[in-house]
């Protein structure tokens, strides 16, 4: 895998060992942390859009990174929602989406 922590883009290899993981190819400790997270519990911030009646779309994001495997399920939840104006930056659109403990919040004002 390619490390994305900084622009160096080190090619990383991860081996499973008896007491955890052995990372090679990294040139700094952040690379090791990234590689292990990618192998155990990869997460991604979701950004998407939700329609607002009679207005442009409102952009939204997950308030924290979500488990990578739940991204499409979360998008499907968002597809069922239509909002009424006004919407403000920071408004919670979906609380605790799919029991992840993460909220979906608005990132734009739609007056």
């Amino acid at each position: 895998m390619i490390c994305i922590v900084c622009p160096m883009g080190c090619p990383l290899s991860v081996e499973k060992t008896a007491d955890g993981f052995k990372v090679s190819g990294n040139t700094c400790p952040r690379g090791e942390k990234y590689a292990i997270a990618e192998c155990t519990a990869p997460t991604r911030t979701l950004t998407s859009i939700v329609p607002v009646k009679g207005k442009d779309m409102v952009s939204v994001k997950s308030s924290a990174p979500l488990p990578k495997e739940k991204i499409f399920d979360c998008v499907n939840v968002l597809a069922t929602i239509t909002l009424d104006a006004p919407v403000k930056v920071g408004d919670i659109i979906v609380k605790d989406i799919l029991g992840t403990g993460v909220d979906i919040v608005a990132t734009k004002n739609i007056p």
């Binding site: 911030t45 950004t47 952009s59 994001k61 930056v89 990132t107 734009k108 004002n109």
Partner: peptide, 10 residues
């Protein structure tokens, strides 16, 4: 901190 484009503009 990490922002989206609209938040940065805001």
């Amino acid at each position: 901190e990490e922002l989206t484009g609209p938040e940065y503009a805001w």
